[in-house]
């Protein structure tokens, strides 16, 4: 299991390589990237802030939960970026390997969906005319 929070650009090929396994017939990956618009506003860039120790701990817990739910999971890698990101940059990369494809889709989706709910990382969207912490207000 590889869990990482980094201030450096994420190398997606390296994340895929982390889950290579001779027992795996499927590798599934999710790559989250920075979009150029949000709710109709043009996004200039994003700033990610993290509570580092807890963020890594929570990402690890989510990956462990996935391993309990899908015991056939061979390997898991989760890498999340922090700091300032430009349009098109990779914000998060998740890769899992399993013997068959169905579980790889399910596990990968579970991991990204749960990370978005529990991991203490905050995204500030910067627009041409200001900036907003995403989801902070109803």
């Amino acid at each position: 299991m590889h869990i990482e929070l980094t201030g450096e650009p994420i190398d997606v090929a390296a994340v895929l390589a982390m889950v290579e396994d001779d027992g795996a017939g499927a590798v599934n990956a999710f790559v989250g990237t920075v979009r150029n618009q949000s709710t109709g506003k043009r996004v200039v860039r994003l700033h990610y802030e993290a509570y580092d120790a807890m963020a890594v701990g929570q990402m690890r817990r989510v990956a462990e939960e996935a391993q309990e739910k899908w015991p056939m999971l061979q390997k898991v890698a989760v890498v999340h970026r922090k700091g300032t990101l430009e349009i098109g940059d990779v914000a998060v990369a998740i890769a899992v390997s399993t013997p068959h494809r169905a579980e790889s889709f399910a596990a990968c989706q579970y991991i990204i969906d749960t990370i978005k709910k529990v991991v203490p990382i905050w995204k500030k969207e910067e627009y041409e005319d200001g900036a907003v912490w995403v989801a902070a207000h109803p």
Binding site: G32, Y48, A50, Y51, M54, A55, H80, A91, V92, I112, I115, K116, K117, V118, V119, P120, I121, W122, K123, W133, V134, A135, A136
Partner: peptide
């Protein structure tokens, strides 16, 4: 102790 406002990672 830390305050955790709504998270928005991913």
């Amino acid at each position: 102790i830390a305050l955790i406002p709504p998270v928005s990672g991913g």
